[in-house]
Design a protein around this nucleic acid. Structure first.
Lengths: 116, 116
DNA sequence: TTAATACATAAGCACATTATTATCTATCAA
DNA sequence: TTGATAGATAATAATGTGCTTATGTATTAA
């Protein structure tokens, strides 16, 4: 179903809570237009790898994001097949772009090293 | 400024976190179109009065809701003057109406007893 | 096959969040 | 004025969340 509407208040609250963390919200905004791998998130947020993995797991458990393995790397992107995709997109509309963070990575030559 | 956009990712996450609680989200949705007093929330959510007051305090601290005292009662409503009002409205669009809960209250005669 | 890299996961700890209990203030009705 | 009702707030207890550390698995490159 292509709709922004969420059937239950509980589910809506659950998704909002997931997005109510600045690291997760920024990650989700980032992969709105970009596929990113875990090591990039680690560099961008100056966070430990397990910390990033745990955030991604929550987003994955809620089926908001999907993963794609490519060799050693696992790339994450927004799950366009999610029944909550439109809802998430609607929220992301109001959230400032995080693409600058990726550009910073590229400047440091850290993007290429990681992605194919 | 009349815009759905939020300047910082941190502020967006903070608001989403506030709405990421089913009681608060339901309350905010309810007062999108209705002015409600604390005792009504207590009845609707079968929660303790302090618990409701504390939820309302968080929403008030973030200036998402405003209060209006009327005699013994304090009525809460969405703060249309908030710079985040449009953002919140955009989210509430996707959230199921909670008006049924108020209708239940009315059926039980609990609404009138409380409101003017 | 072995070592290195990328990532996931489990356990434990620190901190944040939520609810409860107790108490306080404000308003109203007798 | 006194008692009752509505609500706020403080202290505390229970629970949840997010981080770190340690370790496990998968893939690649030597």
């Amino acid at each position: 179903m292509r709709t922004k509407s969420i059937a239950s208040i509980e589910k809506a609250a659950q998704i909002l809570k997931l997005l109510g963390d600045k690291t997760r919200l920024s990650m989700v905004k980032l992969i709105e237009n970009n596929e990113c791998c875990v090591c990039e998130f680690v560099d961008i947020y100056q966070a430990s790898q397990p910390s990033i993995s745990q955030h991604l797991r929550k987003l994955r458990d809620a089926e908001l994001v999907k993963e794609r393995r490519k060799g050693q790397w696992v790339f994450y992107s927004l799950n366009k097949e999610s029944q909550y995709y439109e809802f998430v997109l609607g929220i992301l509309e109001s959230v400032p772009s995080q693409d600058e963070r990726l550009k910073e990575l590229e400047k440091q030559g850290l993007r290429i090293s990681c992605c194919e």
